[in-house]
Amino acid sequence: MIRRIFPSPLLSLALVALWMLLNSSFGLGQWLMGLMLAWLVPYLTHSLRPTPVRFSHPMTAMRLFLRVGKDVIIWNWRVLLGTIAPTDRVPQGGFVVVPLDLRDPNGLAVLAAIMCVIPGTIWSELALDRSALLVHLFDLEDAQSEIDLIKRRYERPLMEIFE
């Protein structure tokens, strides 16, 4: 019954919560507007989602969330120190090709978000067959260790969550 009214109940719940927090008002009009958005946005964007999300292992997801938060803080400092470094110690950026085992489109979308939110990394290109990812790193010292780090810290937990 609830899925007929709200095709994505978790997304709808998140939208209502976000709407209420952003408006700082709990009046009837705000609740009605939040519920309307909670129904309308998932309904209109349903065709944009390639596959249904099969989300499992919430503790792994929480650990990944905390790990990404920690990495954002660490990489902010690394980028800051790299940008104010003397010219003889400026970090040398570069591209690495990360072979992917992750195939779930939702997991790949989360990996793209992670790669773009961490300062110093940019998701550059995904192979057409989804077998490899081109990533640019702000400070590239050892390509293989960076590839292993991406696979271990991000891809492996995402595979556990989405596949």
Rank of each mutant, 00 (worst) to 15 (best):
L140Y: 13
P52R: 09
V41G: 01
S131L: 00
P157E: 10
P99H: 09
V41L: 14
R153M: 13
G120F: 01
R103G: 03
A127C: 08
L158M: 08
S145V: 13
F55E: 04
S8G: 00
I161W: 05
P7S: 10
W31Q: 05
M115Q: 10
T45I: 03
L111P: 09
S131C: 00
L10Q: 07
A143C: 01
H46S: 12
L66T: 07
V79K: 10
L64C: 06
L22S: 07
V68C: 11
A109W: 06
L133T: 02
V90G: 00
V79Q: 08
N76A: 07
P42Y: 04
V96S: 09
P42C: 02
A38I: 05
A112W: 02
I74C: 00
G27Q: 11
I161E: 07
N23V: 11
P105K: 04
A14N: 05
P91F: 06
L102F: 06
E160L: 06
W39N: 08
W75D: 14
A38S: 13
R103L: 08
Q30R: 14
G34R: 09
N106H: 05
E160A: 11
L37A: 15
I114T: 04
H136Q: 15
V41Q: 04
M1F: 11
S131D: 03
V68D: 11
L149R: 15
L140M: 12
L137P: 13
T83G: 00
L111I: 03
L137N: 13
V41H: 02
L137Q: 12
W75Y: 14
I2Y: 07
V79S: 08
E125V: 04
L158W: 04
L21H: 12
A113C: 07
R153D: 15
T87I: 02
S124W: 03
L133Y: 02
T45D: 02
P7L: 05
I2S: 01
G120L: 02
R67H: 08
L158A: 08
L15Y: 10
P119R: 06
R4V: 00
V110Y: 02
D148L: 11
L80Y: 15
V117Y: 01
I118K: 06
E163S: 10
Q30S: 15
G82S: 06
R63I: 05
M1G: 14
S47T: 07
P50H: 03
M1E: 10
H136G: 09
P9A: 05
D129Y: 09
M1Q: 12
M20S: 08
G120S: 02
F95T: 11
G27C: 10
L133C: 03
S145M: 10
N76S: 14
E146C: 14
H136S: 10
C116S: 13
